[in-house]
Amino acid sequence: MTGALAAIGASCHSPPSTVEWPKPATLAGVATLDGVAADPRDGLADSLAVVVFISNDCPISNALAPELCALATHASDRGIAFYAVHANPPADLALVSTHANEYGLTNAMTVLVDPEQSLARATGAKVMPEAVLFRRGANKEVTILYIGRVNDLYSALGRRRASPTRNDLRDAIDAAHAGGAPAQSKTKAIGCFIEMSPTAG
């Protein structure tokens, strides 16, 4: 698993890779805000889905919330599922619900919590916000088409542009929806780091 994911990251222009996500079939701990187990891999074979790792208290992640909402609508219009995933949810999950409402995420996308970082480990995501665009297979296997930044609003920590000059995730969604491959399969995401639980994985 790790090797397969590492191979994806080896080149910004590497071809899409087929990746089998963790076994057993369920992703430990991943759930909706109502506590219902969830798995973004579930869906029609060959359908597309987007997972964006976010945080309720990371200003970089929060600054991108309006763009995430716009992207979720953009994706939904094209039949693409869109998930926001808290990879380091606070102990008090009410904060996550409040955050989703305050930032307008609730009605735009499915918000999940991933307290054991099952999804983060599977995709190789390291920071929040970081996006993963993938094509679903027939039996929970996925092909990751793009992993990296949402856009380049932040060029580095502490370096915010007035507006982004690159909209990488949007471009990747459009390319994948058109049946092609994103121009870049991997970019460097800028944000707060995902703290991996020592007990998981």
């Binding site: 060029s155 370096r159 915010r160 542009r161 007035a162 507006s163 000059t165 690159r166």
Partner: peptide
């Protein structure tokens, strides 16, 4: 790293950006 334009535009004194 904070360049807001691609490609860059000419800039004069004024309100950011």
């Amino acid at each position: 790293p904070q360049q807001p334009h691609d490609p860059p535009h000419a800039v004069v004194a004024g309100l950011p950006p």
